[in-house]
Write a protein that binds this DNA or RNA. Structure first.
Lengths: 220, 220
DNA sequence: GTCATCATGTAAGCCGTTACATGATTGC
DNA sequence: GCAATCATGTAACGGCTTACATGATGAC
């Protein structure tokens, strides 16, 4: 069902995450994507459009006709509400919208499941962790907690390795390298502290909201 | 002279940086490289050997015959000193060393110049900044200071953009995304503070060591 | 009338990883 | 004799960026 060959495709995760909130077309999607991952490299059309094609081919998203009342599609220039289906070329529906015919995508049920699968996959944690945090509201609370704890464990290991692996072989270490390593260590410690905050809040929430006590939690 | 098409090749910079200290063969180089960039993704042979080939072809490095007294080549199992040239196959020079014939590389004068060019190139700052810090001892003090200040300016811009660009269009922002952004902001602020320390130390050093006062500084 | 912005796509190329091919030596 | 480590390379493939191709519309 879910093509294994497209797991760990970070862009797919981001696209599904955005479409989960509302239907969007490619151009708008790219703007949101850039805002989402922002600092760590904006994505380009050359990877976005093929990604949308892939997701459509596997049935994770599908083209929709922009007129459902609740899932508002922003018109990039604002538009009232009754945008009829074929406003594409020279239409000037409502208050005029420009450019080529847009293709608006919506997420499918399959897409929602795929998103969860992608978010839960531990092998993509390293490359995609910040994105996963941004989208983790889509996860079941226990899975979310696991995500945070997995990351915390990984960082702890890194920290231990950094501290143990001192002074190996003929490695020259000048002041700049030492300063860099020191800063790296502090950055990791800072992230661990941040994660501890998230983990605490998450556990609090689990205790308050869902005292399930039985199985159901150890599924999968 | 310096092929423009190979600028911003991060691996080249790292290799040159390591060979600058001592002659090394590929296998050993990879271990050091992994220790150097460590956390942010270990490099593989599949990219290292071609990189060495490229650098050799352009004359930035050249194969050497491992016997200069001062530029000791670590034998991965320790070896005294008189490692003769053709100890390759079944030789057992000194105290036996295993495996295939090793190819030991040394940096050339051209390679040293290339390294400086690579380190000074602002366009590779983003991808390679930590590496540049690790190797920045090779830079002239004023260039080093520029590197730090350039980075600081970049981070400041990012921070400003993050603060200004709040609440755009129909963007949904949940608690997790907010927490992520908050953490990102703090991480950037932390790096700026760290850079301020480096910059101060650098300026101090410049004032004490080299009060040149004249030109010479504004060269290129 | 032409520039910027909106909008979608394709093709070429870069850079990197994984997997493969090869082979010697040391230690169990 | 078998696995692990040392050691060097090549080939296939993946995913992303750049550049190109196309085209409509609104603002100046």
């Amino acid at each position: 069902m879910y093509r294994i060959d497209m797991l760990s495709r970070v862009i797919d995760m981001a696209v599904l995450g955005l479409l989960q909130d509302q239907d969007l077309h490619g151009y708008e999607l790219r703007k949101r994507l850039t805002a989402l991952v922002g600092l760590r490299g904006a994505i380009s059309f050359g990877s976005l459009y093929p990604a949308l094609g892939r997701l459509e081919a596997t049935g994770a998203v599908k083209a929709v006709e922009a007129n459902d009342a609740d899932r508002a599609i922003p018109m990039t220039g604002s538009l009232s509400g009754e945008a009829s289906a074929f406003m594409a070329r020279r239409a000037t529906t409502g208050r005029g919208r420009a450019g080529r015919a847009r293709k608006v995508y919506g997420i499918t049920e399959h897409g929602r499941e795929l998103l969860v699968t992608l978010l839960e996959d531990p092998s993509s944690d390293d490359k995609a962790f910040p994105l996963k945090v941004a989208l983790c509201a889509a996860l079941a609370p226990p899975r979310r907690l696991e995500l945070f704890e997995r990351r915390r464990a990984g960082l702890t290991t890194q920290l231990a390795a950094a501290r143990t692996g001192k002074r190996r072989s003929g490695e020259r270490v000048d002041g700049y390298l030492r300063a860099l390593r020191e800063h790296d260590t502090q950055t990791i410690e800072h992230e661990i502290a941040w994660l501890d905050g998230l983990i605490d809040a998450e556990r609090e929430h689990l205790r308050a909201e869902g005292p399930v006590t039985s199985q159901e939690d150890t599924t999968e």
